[in-house]
Design a binder for these strands. Sequence first.
DNA 1: GCGACAG
DNA 2: ATCTTGTCGC
Length: 230
Amino acid sequence: MPRTVMEAEAIQDELRTLLDLTGPGPRSPARVAGVDVAYDRDRLAAAVTVLDGTTLEIVEKVAVSGRVAFDYVPGLLAFREVPALLDALERLSAPPDLVVCDGYGLAHPRRFGLACHLGVLTGLPTIGVGKTAFVGTYPTPAPERGSWTDLTLDGDVVGRVLRTRHGIKPVFVSVGHRVDLATACHNVLNLTPRYRLPETTRAADRLSREALIENCRPDLVGSAQYDEMG
DNA sequence: GCGACAG
DNA sequence: ATCTTGTCGC
């Protein structure tokens, strides 16, 4: 783990050279994973929920708990969440065909957000879905579900501002690893039949919060302990 | 120079 | 992210 902002940024610049932006990525993934991390002071719980890509039913879930290893710094979120998420992902019975991250991917100051970071370290296809603006400029997309606009940063299209529900605040989609932007948005729309956020994200968010509470008695099936210094 | 800034 | 009462809207 990096100890300073400078070290962390250097690691991002290094790992970015391993990023695969070729695509296209899966259009009909059988297993889609959602990942999220919940916090309580210096404790954290990372969750991975795998959904059937067609029915959106949860088919597998894993949660791990541990301690915060890196303070939150805009642009360096991955160093705070990736270690625990890697641990959780490795405990799955089988790898997912796509991982939907809670945050940004290529739409990042150094073009290497959480989704890119997790993708490069796991080798899995990943995409990022952010709830609020972080970097880039964009026009407001039309109110209909499915409409979108370019998210531009330094003259590059780094993502899309996508409307997943009619008349409701859009989400920010950017690619992570091994998936192109159109395929990423296609998957996000398939994962949002009813709510603004992908079912994968909603499921992982719930599980991470539950795990944070159930953490007091780590004797439940599907849970595990995770730790690292900070 | 100052403020903003994924989760 | 998380802390948190009331409040606005459907």
